[in-house]
């Protein structure tokens, strides 16, 4: 027995190295583009294609000033729009997912299975496929080219509802709800006072998911919006890239704009990390 134990430990550490190396590779894979972006955005237009890829340039501040001056600071307008779409959309989406997930998890009603199966089916349909039909529908009701055209389609997100339902099933004991009912709490009170607090870690996950998804969304706002004053950053920066055949792309402004646009995402993740971690571990146990 004594001979086996150390041996086992050594094999475990041997196996342990491989995942660590793999994870390191993965981290490198994820972080390299970000560091490239950081380096590239520090280059002035003249340096961008002439200096080595991984050498820092000298133009970061002038890039930032140029970007903020571009079309009288339209960058800030786009940043504000993106915040509105991502923040508002994620909040609304989380609310809808929480309520529907809770209802699907804790109430028995006819059609529940059907709705759930439809949701699962909905997860399989990529949002990209829906963008054009949604545009045609929104045009019909006169909502195309409005803020709602970008917000509304992203509120109902099947995967988030699915997550909320799974989470509610696991996190809210039926007995607790039963006890609440016996004490005379209304269904609304049960949801607000009992269910939602228990679901918070799951809801944070959903919020983050949706926030990032909407922040990065390109196709839907690209199709829905005609007025460049309502563009989010993704579509706005794209107008700098595809500036027309006879205009040079404003690479340095795009790179700087992209770098600035990921800062809020990083900040959000750092501040929400606690909840995120709680959720991952609690999911593992349940």
């Amino acid at each position: 027995m004594a001979a086996i134990a150390p041996q086992r430990r050594s094999t475990r550490s041997g196996i342990g190295l491989a995942p660590t190396a793999l994870l390191l590779l993965g981290a490198l894979y994820c972080l390299f583009p970000v560091s490239w972006l950081l380096i590239a955005s520090s280059k002035s237009p003249g340096e961008l294609f002439t200096t080595p890829t991984l050498a820092f340039g000298t133009g970061f501040l002038s890039n930032v000033t140029d970007l903020f001056a571009y079309r009288d600071g339209v960058f800030w307008l786009w940043m504000g729009n993106t915040l509105l779409y991502a923040g508002g959309g994620a909040l609304l989406s989380t609310a809808v997912s929480a309520i529907s997930g809770y209802a699907l998890a804790k109430y028995r009603f006819p059609g529940r299975k059907l709705i759930f199966n439809l949701l699962i089916g909905g997860i399989l349909v990529p949002a990209v496929v829906l963008a054009i039909p949604q545009y045609l529908l929104f045009s019909k009701i006169g909502l195309a080219d409005t803020y709602w055209a970008v917000l509304l389609p992203q509120i109902l997100h099947p995967y988030s509802v699915y997550l909320a339902r799974i989470y509610a099933t696991a996190a809210i004991p039926d007995s607790l709800l039963e006890a609440g009912r016996i004490d005379g709490a209304s269904e609304g009170r049960l949801l607000g006072r009992l269910a939602l607090p228990l679901m918070v870690p799951g809801l944070v996950t959903i919020f983050l998911f949706q926030f990032v998804a909407i922040w990065n969304n390109f196709l839907l706002p690209f199709i829905m919006l005609g007025d460049d004053g309502k563009f989010p950053l993704t579509v706005g920066l794209y107008t700098l890239l595809a500036a027309g055949a006879n205009q040079p792309s404003l690479y340095n402004l795009i790179l700087t704009g992209t770098l600035l646009s990921i800062i809020p995402l990083i900040a959000l993740f750092l501040t929400m990390q606690r909840y995120w971690k709680t959720d991952l571990s609690s999911g593992a146990v349940k």
Binding site: Y238, A243, A245, Q247
Partner: peptide, 20 residues
């Protein structure tokens, strides 16, 4: 309303025209 140029702009205009 400043758009992205190129082929995408044409596709976007055609879609918008079709949608009315």
């Amino acid at each position: 309303s400043k758009q992205a140029g190129g082929d995408d702009a044409a596709a976007k205009f055609l879609t918008a025209a079709k949608a009315g």
